[in-house]
Amino acid sequence: MKKIKLTVNKKEYMLEIKEDTRLIDLLRDVLGFTGVKEGCGEGECGACTVIMDGDIVNSCLVLAFQADGKEIITIEGVESEEEIHPIQQAFLDVGAVQCGFCTPGMILSAKALLDKNPSPTREEIRAAISGNLCRCTGYNKIVDAIERAALYLKRGK
């Protein structure tokens, strides 16, 4: 067992974990953040994407102890108390969600992009979500939504 301290969605946790626990299992099974989805479990599909210290990671490929001292954001930590995040609003407004399984990962990849680059081109958006597979939407409405989210975020400031 190993003791770790990490922040998830702005809340600090002190936990004792097994050395071989994956970050995704810690987030889902121990802390209850089931918005983190397990797709392939081998880092190909991006459904389990979370933001760790500002960068996206596949939480199925990160061991929980590697998150010691880090700050994690899952889809549950994206909205504020009053309202959903502008990226989530844009996904709704554009119709970028079909079955929804890839959506949490897509939104977190979009957030990590827009936090660093508030005015991305469509090509930059495509590159930013290229690690997130989607079988329903053909990606185009997701790209539209992230473009629109960039506008919402600018307008909000």
Binding site: E42, E44, C45, A127, I129, S130, L133, R135, Y139, N140
Partner: peptide
């Protein structure tokens, strides 16, 4: 039976339609 050797399109493979 994995996305490593069964490839599906990514966002970079799709044109705007």
């Amino acid at each position: 039976n994995s996305f490593t050797n069964y490839l599906i399109p990514t966002s970079l493979d799709m044109p705007d339609i």
